[in-house]
Each structure stands twice: as structure tokens, then as C-alpha cells.
Amino acid sequence: MKLAIASGKGGTGKTLVATNLFYALQQLNYQVVLVDCDAEAPNDMVFFKGEKIKYFYVHQEIPVINEKKCKFCSKCHEYCNYNAIFILPDLKVIKVIEDLCHGCGACDVACDFNAISTKPVPIGSITKYAIENNTFIIEASMNTGVFSPVPIINAAIKEAKNEKIVILDSPPGTSCPFINTVAEADFVVLVTEPTPFGLSDLKQSIDTLKIIDKPYGVVINRSGIGDTEIYNYLKQENIKLLLEIPFDKMIAFYYSNGELISQLEYQWADKFVSMFNFIIDQYGNSNN
């Protein structure tokens, strides 16, 4: 079972839910792996102590143009969706803007003169930590200035491919990093807050999940603030409310100290486990 914890809006509590769920399952001796897919700002390890047991770089292939073979036909430039190939045919100038390259390889396919080869450039890294009870955290981390974290996120998820229970702490937003993370999940837990901003971004996430046909449920964090619109929406759309986490100073206090509410107040561990069991009952299948 792969469970993605995601949200459209940033700062709604994805990491709070992901880390507490991981902790609660770990304490019951479940073989669980938490993958921190928020490669731009991974912080799940703030809440755990562990030993680094694996580390490797993730590379992206960047084109290298052989100017002797290049006929300055501009075909590679036309194939490139990201403006990463700069060409002035009249002046016989061609350059690769490496920062813009997504490593898709289209330029290499486009070239009829065999003038393009590639070189690997490191764009980030994967670190695997051993935590208590034979559980693991896999952290994706992107280098500063890299255009897209997607290849790093994919490498991190791949690292957990043989595990039985995987929690994917998704990056915020609803663009490629989010889509690549939730696409790998069997179920998506959308964390939101009862504010107009939270609702607007929740709708965007749900629209995206509908297109890729993923089952999902909602966790409302900081309940008690804002308004009731989000509850009306969930009711109207018949969307399952999995859990509510109240707006509580102590929860915020623990979290900002790098502590887990499930460790400090046992009722919270129970709530996360109940949510997990509900998801397994409804959406788990015998293959996983």
C-alpha cells in the first residue's frame, strides 16, 4: 500500500500527518517506509533520529553539442519545449542553457547530424535512514537552482518500491512534483485547512486527482479557524473526511519543537492508526 500525503496549499500540515502516521505505525511494528518527496525542502528527518545507511546522487542528462558536426538547422531548438537551446544560425552560434534543460532528450532525437551527445549533471541526492523497529525514511533532496525536482522524487519513490507500506510526503502545489508523487500512490490523503485559500487549493488538487483517477480522502487541519465552506463542499461532493486536527496551541508548540503529537499524546497515535485502518479496509487490495 502506497499512501501519498498531499495538499494544494503549502503549510496545511502534510508533514505533520505524514510523520505522525509513520510514527504511529512504526510503534505497532508495521514495516513502514516514509519517503520525503518534498525535495525542495525535505524536513521529515527533523522529527526522527536515524542512521544514514545509503546515499547517492541523482543525475540528469544534459545535451552537449558538437559544433563541428552541427549544421545550425535549428531542429533541436524547435523540439525543445523549455527554450534550453539558444541558436543563431546566421552567426553560427549554438548554446545549451543548462539551467533550463529538463533532460527530456528531445534535442538528441531531433538532431539528424549526430551532433548531440549528453553528459550527466548531478541535480540532487537520495539519503536512506534506518529508524527504530526496522523502519526507514528515504529523503529526496534537490540541489539549489535546479529547474525541476521530478527526477529526484522519482528516484526516491523507486528506492521504496519493494516495501509493503509506503507513506509519500508529497511536495505542495498541484504541478509536476505533486502529480509525479501521487501518480505512484494507491490512495491520496489531502491535508487542508478550513479557509477560503485551503478550499480553493483543495478543489484544484481534487480536480487533478479525478483526471488521473486516484482515490482520495481529506484531513482538515487547524479545524475551528476560518469558516464552514469546506465542510459544505465535502458533503456536497460526498468526499470522505478522514480526520480533523483542531487548531491547538500545544500541537503547534510540539511541532515547532520537532516533536510528534503521537508520541506525546497517545490518543493521537490511535487516531492516525484508525485513519490508516479505514483506508486499508476501503482501498487496500490483497496484492499489497
Binding site: Y82, N83, A84, F86, I97, L100
Partner: peptide, 10 residues
């Protein structure tokens, strides 16, 4: 969406 600067130079 991306690379407006280099495209403008071109």
C-alpha cells in the same frame, strides 16, 4: 513558461 530571457536574446 520558461526561458523567456534566452529566447529574447535570440
Amino acid at each position: 513558461e520558461a526561458g523567456a530571457g534566452p529566447a529574447a536574446v535570440q
